[in-house]
C-alpha cells in the first residue's frame, strides 16, 4: 500500500502544483479565471506543449534533444516556401511533418549507430539546422503565404471557441499517452530508458528504438513549426530559439526523470501548463518579462527539489 501511495503522490504532485498556482493567480487577478483567458493559455501552451510531447519520448530513453527549436524553424521555413510556391496545404503540411521526422532521425541515427552522446549530437544538429534555416531564408522572414484553410486554422482558427492549436496539442497528448502506456513500442521506450543492456538481452532492437524517439521528437517539433507559422502567417528564421529549454522544463516539471525510464505523458501536459499558466499569470499581474525569467527558473528549481524528496 505504501508503494501505491508513493506512486500516487508522484503522479499527483505536479497536478497539485498546477492547481495551487492557478488558485493563487485566480485570487490575485480577476482576469485569470475567464473563459477567454483560459483559451488564450491553451493557445499559448500548445506550441511549447507540442515540442515537449516529443521531448518526453527522448527523455524517457535517457536522452535529450536540443535540436527541436532549430527543427521547428527549418520545417517552418520549408513549409512557408512550399505554400508560397503554391503547393496546397493538404500536401505541404504532411510533407513538413515528414521532414521533421527525417531531421530528428538524423540525430537519432548518429546517436544510436555511432554511440555518441545525445547532448553533443543534438547540440551539433541544433547549430546545423539553425544555420540551414538562415541559408534557406537568407536571414529574412518568409511572408505572403496565401489563404489556405487548413493551414490558417491550425494557428489562428477555433472550433466552438477552442483554438485548433490547443486541440492538436491535446490530441497529441492523448495519442502519445496511449502509445506509451498501452503499446509494445511504449513499453520498449521505457525499457531502453530503464536499462538498455537488459533491454538488448531481452531481444529488443535498442538502436532502432533509440533512433526512433528522436524522429518522434522531430515530428512534434515540425507540428509546432506548422502551428507557429500559421499563427504568425510567416516563417521567421529565429523561430523556436530556446524552445528546447522550455520543453525540457515542461517534461521535468511533469515528473519525468532525466535519467530515463520514469515518467508519464500526462505529467508533460501538466508541466507545459505550469509554465504556460505562470507566463500568463505574470503577464496579467504586469510583472516585467525580466523578472518573469527569474520566477520561472525558481519554479523549476523548486519543483525539482520537491520531486527529490519522494
Amino acid at each position: 500500500m505504501k508503494i501505491r501511495f508513493g506512486k500516487l503522490v508522484s503522479r499527483l504532485g505536479p497536478l497539485l502544483g498546477l492547481l495551487i498556482l492557478s488558485a493563487l493567480l485566480a485570487a490575485l487577478s480577476p482576469d485569470f479565471l475567464t473563459v477567454s483567458n483560459l483559451m488564450n493559455i491553451l493557445n499559448q501552451v500548445s506550441l511549447n506543449g507540442l515540442v515537449a510531447v516529443g521531448m518526453t519520448f527522448v527523455i524517457l530513453t535517457g536522452g535529450i534533444d536540443l535540436s527541436v527549436g532549430s527543427i521547428l524553424a527549418l520545417t517552418a521555413a520549408l513549409l512557408a516556401a512550399m505554400l508560397k510556391a503554391g503547393i496546397p496545404d493538404f500536401l505541404a503540411i504532411p510533407a513538413t511533418i515528414l521532414l521533421g521526422l527525417a531531421l530528428g532521425m538524423a540525430s537519432g541515427v548518429a546517436i544510436s549507430i555511432f554511440r555518441l552522446q545525445p547532448f553533443i549530437v543534438t547540440m551539433a544538429f541544433m547549430t546545423i539546422y539553425r544555420g540551414a534555416t538562415f541559408v534557406f531564408t537568407q536571414g529574412r522572414p518568409i511572408t505572403g503565404l496565401g489563404n489556405r484553410r487548413i493551414f490558417a486554422a491550425l494557428g489562428r482558427g477555433e472550433l466552438g471557441g477552442v483554438p485548433w492549436s490547443g486541440l492538436v496539442f491535446l490530441a497529441g497528448i492523448g495519442i502519445t499517452a496511449f502509445v506509451l502506456a498501452r503499446t509494445v513500442y511504449g513499453k520498449y521506450v521505457y525499457a531502453v530508458g530503464g536499462n538498455p543492456e537488459a533491454a538488448r538481452l531481452s531481444g529488443l532492437a535498442v538502436r532502432k528504438i533509440t533512433a526512433s524517439v528522436y524522429a518522434v521528437s522531430g515530428i512534434f517539433a515540425a507540428l509546432a513549426g506548422i502551428v507557429l507559422t500559421s499563427r504568425l502567417d510567416s516563417a521567421q528564421p529565429l523561430a523556436g530559439n530556446g524552445y528546447e529549454l522550455d520543453a525540457i522544463a515542461a517534461v521535468v516539471l511533469g515528473g519525468t526523470s532525466l535519467s530515463g525510464g520514469k515518467g508519464f505523458m500526462l505529467g508533460t501536459l501538466i508541466g507545459a501548463f505550469i509554465i504556460g499558466v505562470l507566463n500568463n499569470g505574470l503577464n496579467l499581474l504586469e510583472v516585467s518579462s525580466f523578472y518573469q525569467q527569474i520566477v520561472k527558473g525558481g519554479v523549476i528549481l523548486l519543483a525539482v527539489l520537491l520531486d527529490r524528496r519522494k
Binding site: 509494445v184 513499453k187 521505457y190 525499457a191 530503464g194 536499462n195 543492456e197 537488459a198 531481452s202
Partner: peptide, 22 residues
C-alpha cells in the same frame, strides 16, 4: 543487465514477450 530494477515485476517478466501479448 538482467532486471529493470525500478519497474514492476510484471514488466520484468514480460520484457522478452511483449509482442506476443499484443
Amino acid at each position: 543487465d538482467g532486471l529493470f530494477l525500478p519497474f514492476g515485476v510484471d514488466f520484468n517478466i514480460g520484457s522478452a514477450s511483449f509482442p506476443s501479448l499484443a
